[in-house]
C-alpha cells in the first residue's frame, strides 16, 4: 500500500506529430463549411441544412511532405448573429478558409466583407484561401473565372470544390496546410535564429496539392 506506483508513459509509440496548425472555416450561413469539414474528416455528407451553433472542433492528422501535421479545424457559425462572436477566434488561426456558395451570388459578394473582417481580427501571417463550394450544382451563378478573379484581387489562392461529390475537398486542406508550412519555413529561414532543431524540413516542396496522403 505504501509504495507509489508511477504511470508515466514510455516514449516513441508513434503518437507524436511534428506540428499543429489551427485552421478556421468562415463564410456566410449555408455555404457548406460544416459539410466540407465533415467530408474531409469523416468522409460523410449530409444534404440537410443544420445550422452550426458555437464552434465545432475537429482534428485530423495529415502527412505534408513527410511530416505529420495535426490540423485543428474550427468550424464557425456563419449566421450573421454569431459573427461578432466568431471573430474572437480569428487571432490564433494559422489558416483561414473563406467559403462561398457558387449558386448564391450574395455569399460571393460577401466574401469581401469576410476578407475585411479577417484583416481586422486575424494575425497578419495567417494564410487565407478562397473556396467556391457546391461546384456540382447546375444552378451555379458564380463562374470559376469570377472566383479566380476575386481571389486574384484579394491576393489569395482559390479552389472550387463540392463537398457533396467530394471534389477537391482534400485539396483545400492540403493546399492550405502546405502554404502554411511554407510560410513557417520561410519565417524560419529569415527568422532570428530561435535555434531549435529543425523539426520542420526547410526544403519542403510546394504546390503539388493532391499528392499527400491522410493518415
Amino acid at each position: 500500500m505504501s509504495g507509489l506506483r508511477t504511470v508515466s508513459a514510455s516514449s516513441g509509440n508513434g503518437k507524436s506529430y511534428d506540428s499543429i496548425m489551427k485552421i478556421l472555416l468562415i463564410g456566410d450561413s449555408g455555404v457548406g463549411k460544416s459539410c466540407l469539414l465533415v467530408r474531409f474528416v469523416e468522409d460523410k455528407f449530409n444534404p440537410s441544412f443544420i445550422t452550426t451553433i458555437g464552434i465545432d472542433f475537429k482534428i485530423k492528422t495529415v502527412d505534408i511532405n513527410g511530416k505529420k501535421v495535426k490540423l485543428q479545424l474550427w468550424d464557425t457559425a456563419g449566421q450573421e448573429r454569431f459573427r461578432t462572436i466568431t471573430t474572437a477566434y480569428y487571432r490564433g488561426a494559422m489558416g483561414i478558409i473563406l467559403v462561398y456558395d457558387v449558386t448564391d451570388e450574395r455569399t460571393f459578394t460577401n466574401i469581401k466583407q469576410w476578407f475585411k473582417t479577417v484583416n481586422e481580427h486575424a494575425n497578419d501571417e495567417a494564410q487565407l484561401l478562397l473556396v467556391g463550394n457546391k461546384s456540382d450544382m447546375e444552378t451555379r451563378v458564380v463562374t470559376a473565372d469570377q472566383g479566380e478573379a476575386l481571389a486574384k484581387e484579394l491576393g489569395i489562392p482559390f479552389i472550387e470544390s463540392s463537398a457533396k461529390n467530394d471534389d477537391n475537398v482534400n485539396e483545400i486542406f492540403f493546399t492550405l496546410a502546405k502554404l502554411i508550412q511554407e510560410k513557417i519555413d520561410s519565417n524560419k529561414l529569415v527568422g532570428v535564429g530561435n535555434g531549435k532543431e529543425g523539426n520542420i524540413s526547410i526544403n519542403s516542396g510546394s504546390g503539388n496539392s493532391s499528392k499527400s496522403n491522410c493518415c
Binding site: 504511470v7 508513459a9 503518437k15 507524436s16 506540428s19 499543429i20 482534428i59 494559422m94 530561435n194 532543431e197
Partner: peptide, 27 residues
C-alpha cells in the same frame, strides 16, 4: 487496475507522451 488509460487536454491527446518536437509550439 489503477492504470492510466489516456491523458489529454481539451484539444490535444496523448499529452503524457514525451514529444521533443513540440518545444516551439504556438499553442
Amino acid at each position: 487496475s489503477g492504470k492510466l488509460i489516456h491523458a489529454r487536454s481539451i484539444f490535444e491527446t496523448h499529452v503524457n507522451f514525451p514529444n521533443p518536437a513540440l518545444k516551439d509550439c504556438s499553442f
